[in-house]
């Protein structure tokens, strides 16, 4: 059982702390529209009916019925599936999954624009670029994470860098000691649409209820241990207690 596990880079997105600010969306767009691979084209950006290519979107869902509702901000990008259904269907081998780190990429110079891969992605993670006329998708900022010109702490996807609440964590999910693996393990990480068997690498962490339970006796002074022994009577609400005499 000493088989070496393959590296699989991925994002873990914590739905409990995402505030839906779209900083990851704009940061992603800014980085990926400025690179050597060409722009993420915006068609008619300031006119009527604008349309643009994005690698990452933040959507918002309402769960429950008012007033008992919960608001879920839901960032969605390519999940870099371990069994990516978009890859084997690409006729020109433009879509591929990297052996070394499991990132699913599109070779823009090989794409013929048949859009067959987008049909084979249940998550709608791929977007067709109307400028370059090729299919595009999240690259996990492959042009950042290995760039030795960047300082070590900057070798992260642009969305992760931008997130103000640290809702996005980046790492190798097949390394059990990595931060992403720990988060998945300890906070109930789950995958999207597991029913299709695509084994998405990106995981999401669920909403967690923060519950503070206060018993009635905690509202009055109950910190005098002597009362348990029955040596002293329970102090009155406004009486001085141990805390008032001592500085711990």
């Amino acid at each position: 059982m000493d088989k070496k596990r393959k590296k699989q880079l991925a994002l873990v997105i914590d739905l409990n702390v995402c505030v839906g600010c779209h900083a990851c969306v704009t940061s992603c767009k800014q980085w990926n529209t400025s690179g050597w691979a060409g722009p993420l084209t915006d068609v008619n950006p300031y006119g009527e009916n604008p349309s643009g290519t994005f690698f990452n979107r933040v959507q918002t869902f309402e769960v429950g019925t008012y007033p008992k509702t919960d608001l879920i901000h839901f960032p969605k990008s390519c999940l870099h599936c371990e069994d990516a259904p978009c890859v084997p269907v690409c006729p020109t081998e433009a879509s591929y999954k990297r052996e070394e780190d499991g990132i699913v990429l599109v070779d823009y110079d090989k794409c013929i624009g048949c859009k067959y891969c987008s049909w084979s992605c249940p998550y709608g993670a791929r977007e067709f670029d109307e400028g370059q006329k090729v299919m595009k998708k999240c690259t996990l900022c492959v042009d950042r994470i290995y760039d030795s010109n960047l300082s070590e702490q900057e070798r992260l996807p642009a969305c992760v860098m931008a997130c103000p609440t640290s809702a996005r964590v980046f790492g190798d999910i097949n390394d059990s000691d990595s931060q992403v693996s720990q988060r998945i393990r300890e906070h109930g990480g789950f995958q999207l649409m597991p029913e299709w068997g695509t084994k998405p690498s990106n995981h999401y962490l669920p909403r967690r209820k923060t519950v503070v339970s206060i018993q009635p006796d905690q509202l009055v002074r109950a910190d005098n241990p002597l009362k348990i022994e029955g040596e002293l009577s329970v102090p009155g609400k406004d009486d001085r207690s141990l805390d008032d005499y001592t500085s711990w």
Partner: peptide
């Protein structure tokens, strides 16, 4: 299963953009 929240009533408030897109 799409967003992994197991509640009977889920409604999308916004898909995240008002413009058009490939999807």
């Amino acid at each position: 299963s799409a967003i992994g929240v197991h509640h009977g009533t889920i409604r999308q408030l916004t898909r995240g953009f008002t413009a058009s897109s490939f999807n």
